[in-house]
Amino acid sequence: MSGFRIKLSRSLRNKVHGSWMTVCLVFVISMPVIIAGGLYWKSSVLLHDHGVFSLIFSKEWKPLSGQFGFYPFIISSIWVTMTALILAAPICLLTAIHLTQYAKRWVLKIMHPVIDILAGIPSVIYGVWGILVVVPFIGNHLGTWLGKSVSGYSILAGGIVLAIMVIPFVLNILIDVFNNIPTELSEASLSLGATRWQTIKFVLVKKGLPGIVAAFGLGMSRAFGETIAVLMVVGNVSRIPSGLFQPGYPLPALIANNYGEMLSIPLYDSALMLSALILFVVVLGFNFVSRYIIAACDKRC
C-alpha cells in the first residue's frame, strides 16, 4: 500500500514538474513576440498618426509641437556604432589570432581573466571612466593637437568607450571561431612549406571568415543598443552630426534621457516606445543574421 502511494506521488510530482517546465518554456520562447507586441501596442498611436517612413526620415524633433523625426538619432547611432566597430575590429582580430596561435601559456593565464572582467564591468562604470579619461583626453589633448576647440563630449568619445565595451564580447566569439578550426588544417598548410603567418593569412582567416563576419555583426548590434555608457559621454545634442568631434544623440540615449517627461507630453511616450521598437528590430535582425551565419558555418565545417 505504501509502495503504491510512493509511486503515485512520484508520478504526480513528475507531472506537476513537467507542466511547470512547459509553462516556463512557452513563456520564454514567446518572449520576443511579447516584447515586440508590447512595444508596438504603445507606439502604434504615433505610427498611425505619422507613418513609419515620415518618422524615420524626418529631421524635426519637437515633441511639444508633436513633431517626432528620428533621423538625427538614427544617424547618430550609426556614427557611434561604426566608430566603435572600426576601432574594435582590428584589435579584436589581432588579439584573437595572437591568443589562439602564438601566445604562451602565461599570456593566456593573464588575458583570460582580463577579458572576463572587462566583459563583466557594468556599463555605468565604463561611462564613469569615459568621463574621467576619454572625454578630457579628447577635449584637452586631441582637440588642441588638431587645432580644434571641442568639448570632448563627442561621437568619438562614445565610439572609444563603446569599442572597449564590445572588445571582450567580440573577442570571446573570435577565440571560439579560431579554436574551432581543426589543427590539422594548419598542419597541412605548414607541411606544404607555408610559414606560420602565411597559414594564418591564407588558411585560418579564410576558413574562419563567416565566423569573423558574424562576430563583428554581433558586436555591432551590441554597440547599437548600448545605452548608459554612451549617453554619458556622447554629448546628447539632437542635431545631425557631421564629424567625429561633434556631439551626437543615439537612439538608446534618447529613450533613457527623456523618460522623465515621457508622460507629461502627448504622444511622447509613444515616440520613445517606437525608438525602443526600432532598436529591437535592428538588433534582432543583426543578431539573427549573424547567428544564422555561425550556425550554417558550424554545419559545413
Binding site: P182, E184, L185, E187, A188, S189, F202, V203, K206, K207
Partner: peptide
Amino acid sequence: AQRPYPLPM
C-alpha cells in the same frame, strides 16, 4: 592526415 583536411579553397 587521418582524415582529409582540404584547405578552404
